[in-house]
Amino acid sequence: MLKLFELIVAASLVNNFVFTRYLGLCIFMGVTKKMETALGMSMTFTAVMVISAAINWVAYNFVMEPYHLEFLKILVFVAIIAGFVQSADTIMRKVSPGLYYKLGIYLALIITNCIILAVPLTIAESHYNFIQSLVFGLGSGLGFALALIIMASIREKLELADVPRPFQGLPIAFILTGLIALAFVGFSGLITL
């Protein structure tokens, strides 16, 4: 049990995908202009991450490893995620239009996101068992949500700041992210798995 808690902390803080592994930056920069979109994205993201970790774990351990198809893992993971997200999109539109109206746009963005794909790749490489994979997916999702919320709240304040014109928009956001990433170095060594 303690091991699983450690895994959550490790995945969300120590190895935070945005600040220590530098992944998912397109979406990170794209949706953090407003707190509302950041919150919607982080909820959708965490849910998709846990479910895709589960499906991909099953596919990897029961189909790909027995038949020695590991070299196809990129293709298989991408196909599973794209199919799953596409069907979630269709089902949500029929079953709950309200939720679709709020979160549908984020679902479309998720297909081309590196973190969503990095989670099953990392799981396959680290040989986690099923429960560990779920927990790793959850921890990564929470870590990404934390990153989005920190960044969105800073960027809302930044709207009022007097930034030199060439640095407005993305350049200053990058420098900010670098500063937060420096702070996240403080978490390294907190947990050694």
């Binding site: 600040f19 220590t20 530098y22 640095f167 993305l170 350049p171 200053i172 956001a173 990058f174 420098i175 992210t177 670098g178 990433a181 420096l182 170095v185």
Partner: peptide, 11 residues
């Protein structure tokens, strides 16, 4: 530093 990329890209 590893996160120097952020500063380099931003600048």
């Amino acid at each position: 530093l590893p996160m120097g990329g952020f500063f380099a890209v931003g600048l």
